[in-house]
């Protein structure tokens, strides 16, 4: 199918002996926002990090099963992890701009890809910051340290930084969990706009947020994918009892 971006088949992940993800199978549609919800420690962040192989950094992790992105198994031996990460960007829970200037933060990805032309870089900075809806706030202080920005601005700068390398898929790991309501709503608007061009997966603890921003929702519990479907359906008439209990706040 053309509009399936990511196809996951029986993916299991082990931290040493412990099985953290149990035979996950799901399909992520293209150019939609898919929310991953579930209680803490249920494996949703771990799953998200599987998609751009960030779990490779942890030595004890081993993975079985298939993760097909546009038909290519990213855990195949011939696949270069660096190229995967260029295609699949990630925004982290805690905003983590580099201790450099705003400008340098945005062009970091382009720099390491070998772009040195000043005009091209300027353009990348402007378009990325505009896309992240932060250009107007920052255009006069591009030389300032990124660490001097507010939390919400930092997080949108991180999104801009991710957009600057022009990925296909953006993974967001609770991008608004540490932000105030106004910053959160800005990020949510941003997600809404970005789905025109990108496929977005977003992990969130906040059920209202999932309901507001996502088209599809997947509910994880204890390392298993309990249920996945259209957000409307999940939130109004979930098929499984556990999902309903979680959404209505009876546990979790």
């Amino acid at each position: 199918m053309k509009d399936i971006k990511i196809q996951v088949n029986d993916l299991s992940l082990y931290y040493g002996e412990k099985k953290a993800l149990k035979e996950i199978s799901m399909q992520v549609p293209a150019n939609k926002v898919t929310a991953l919800i579930g209680p803490s420690g249920c494996g949703k962040s771990t799953f998200l990090r599987c998609i751009n192989r960030m779990n490779d950094l942890i030595p004890s992790v081993s993975i079985t099963g298939q993760m097909l992105v546009e038909g290519v198994d990213i855990y195949d031996k011939n696949v270069d992890v660096v190229n995967i990460r260029k295609k699949i960007g990630m925004v982290f829970q805690k905003s983590n701009p580099f201790p450099k200037s705003i400008y340098e933060n945005v062009i970091y990805g382009s720099r390491i890809n070998g772009i040195t032309d000043k005009r091209e870089l300027d353009e990348i900075v402007e378009t990325s910051l505009r896309q992240a809806a932060i250009w107007d706030e920052l255009k006069d202080r591009l030389g300032d340290s990124a660490l001097g920005l507010s939390g919400g601005q930092q997080q949108r700068l991180c999104i801009a930084r991710t957009l600057a390398v022009n990925p296909d898929i953006i993974l967001m790991d609770e991008p608004a969990s540490a932000l105030d309501p106004i910053s959160t709503s800005k990020i949510e608007e941003l997600v809404h706009e970005l789905k025109e061009k990108y496929t977005i997966l977003i992990v969130t603890h906040n059920m209202q947020q999932a309901a507001r921003v996502s088209d599809h929702t997947a509910f994880f519990y204890m390392g298993e994918l309990i249920e996945m479907g259209k957000t409307d359906a999940i939130f109004t008439k979930p098929a499984k009892k556990q999902t309903e209990d979680y959404i209505t706040g009876r546990f979790g």
Partner: peptide, 11 residues
């Protein structure tokens, strides 16, 4: 987190 951010950008 710096290392992760950099690696996630394809460095």
């Amino acid at each position: 987190t710096y290392t992760e951010a950099s690696l996630a950008l394809g460095a």
